[in-house]
């Protein structure tokens, strides 16, 4: 997947644990872990909105498009 999730960096910057974020956002740690490890296939706008509100950031701070990863995925 060419979309990288930078939740780890954001949590580190905000000195926040995944458990705390899960409580604030209102979704399970399991689902947040799926998102954090890049295993999610899609993200709801409502989830994105809640994470942005909890971490005081923009969607672009959480997600990043990596063209090289896309090319590697196509080659594989």
């Amino acid at each position: 997947m060419a979309i990288a999730v930078k939740l780890d960096d954001l949590l580190h910057d905000r000195r926040m644990t995944l458990t705390e974020l899960a409580e604030r956002v209102g979704i399970t740690i399991v689902n947040l872990s799926i998102l954090k490890t890049g295993k999610a296939r899609a993200i709801r706008f409502s989830t994105l909105e809640a994470i942005c509100a909890a971490l005081s950031c923009q969607p672009g701070d959480i997600l990043e498009y990596l063209p090289d990863a896309a090319q590697e995925a196509e080659a594989a």
Binding site: N31, A40, R41, T47
Partner: peptide, 14 residues
Amino acid sequence: AEGALMREDLEGTV
């Protein structure tokens, strides 16, 4: 078949 595909999509949605 369509329902199974939609469910598969939904399963990976956070």
